[in-house]
Amino acid sequence: MEIYLIRHTTPAIESGICYGFSDIDVADTFETEAAAVKAKLPEGDFDVYSSPLLRCHKLATTLFGDKVITDERLKEMNFGAWEMLAWEAIGKEELQTWADDFVQAKVPQGESYEELYLRTMAVVEEIIEKGNNAVLVTHGGVIRSILAHATNTPLVDSFDLKVQYGRISQLQVENGDIKVIFYNS
């Protein structure tokens, strides 16, 4: 069984802004980036899952038409009270408290990285149980958490796994074991 993870294309937001659950549109480069993703996709029949957020769903439907299944659990991390704030506008103490233990510490009115990981892996386990080849069009945090699981990387070290916009990662599942074939292609 193969699972392809596709990160959405460049979002239409200036750098330095905290966003996760916010429904951001894609940048003007979308058509070019989507064509580059499409050129790398393998042939075959896939179940296609997407975050419902516009930056993912737009790419998923552009690539796969109306066969896309949306799943709330594939959303990016919920940054709660910090959503759409400039990172520098977030209180330094509050930000440092979270940064010191971002895996377990919850963002105010949001979630922890561990909570994102748990909801993400619940989706992945359901997909593996179905046994069909699948594509997930989702976000950097979601993909990073799946790659961390597949490579036995502790969540605290998972940000060393760089996941770029509009890139594909391939996983192979055999007897319940997940192996990374490539990532960030």
Rank of each mutant, 00 (worst) to 15 (best):
V137C: 04
T97C: 00
F64T: 05
G166V: 03
D160Q: 15
L5G: 05
E114M: 12
I168S: 02
K67S: 14
A35W: 00
T151K: 10
V173L: 02
R167G: 03
S51I: 06
L54F: 13
L155K: 08
R144D: 01
V173N: 04
V124Q: 04
P154D: 11
I146N: 03
T61L: 05
D47Q: 10
S185L: 13
Q172N: 12
Y49T: 04
E114V: 09
R73C: 08
T151E: 11
G140M: 05
Y113R: 11
G166A: 08
Q96M: 12
V180M: 04
A105M: 11
W82P: 10
M1W: 03
L63R: 01
I6Q: 06
G140Q: 04
D25V: 07
G65A: 07
E94P: 06
L54A: 15
R55H: 05
L147D: 00
F79M: 11
G16D: 04
W82S: 10
I69N: 13
E14I: 05
A150Q: 04
V142N: 06
T97R: 14
V124K: 03
D157L: 12
K162L: 12
I127G: 01
Q104Y: 11
A39I: 06
K179D: 10
M77N: 12
Q172Y: 13
I90W: 07
R119H: 09
A12E: 14
T70L: 09
F102E: 04
S158R: 11
Q164P: 04
K179T: 15
P108E: 06
E111Q: 09
I90P: 08
A27D: 14
A99W: 11
D23H: 05
N133F: 00
E111T: 06
K67N: 11
L74D: 10
E114I: 10
I128R: 09
T61W: 01
T151V: 04
E88L: 02
K179Y: 11
L74F: 03
V107Y: 00
E93G: 12
L116T: 12
E76Q: 02
T62I: 01
R73W: 04
F79L: 14
T61I: 07
A12M: 10
E33W: 02
E2C: 00
G44R: 04
A148W: 00
Y165S: 07
D177V: 13
G20E: 05
D66H: 11
L118S: 09
M121W: 10
N184D: 15
I69F: 01
L63I: 03
K67L: 06
S169W: 07
F46M: 10
N175A: 13
L116C: 09
S145T: 15
D66N: 14
N133H: 12
P11W: 04
V26G: 00
C56D: 07
E2R: 15
F64Y: 13
E126K: 07
G20I: 08
F64Q: 02
L54Y: 13
A122N: 13
A99K: 14
L147A: 03
V137G: 01
L74C: 06
F159K: 12
T9V: 14
R55M: 08
V124W: 01
H8E: 01
D25I: 05
V103C: 06
H149N: 13
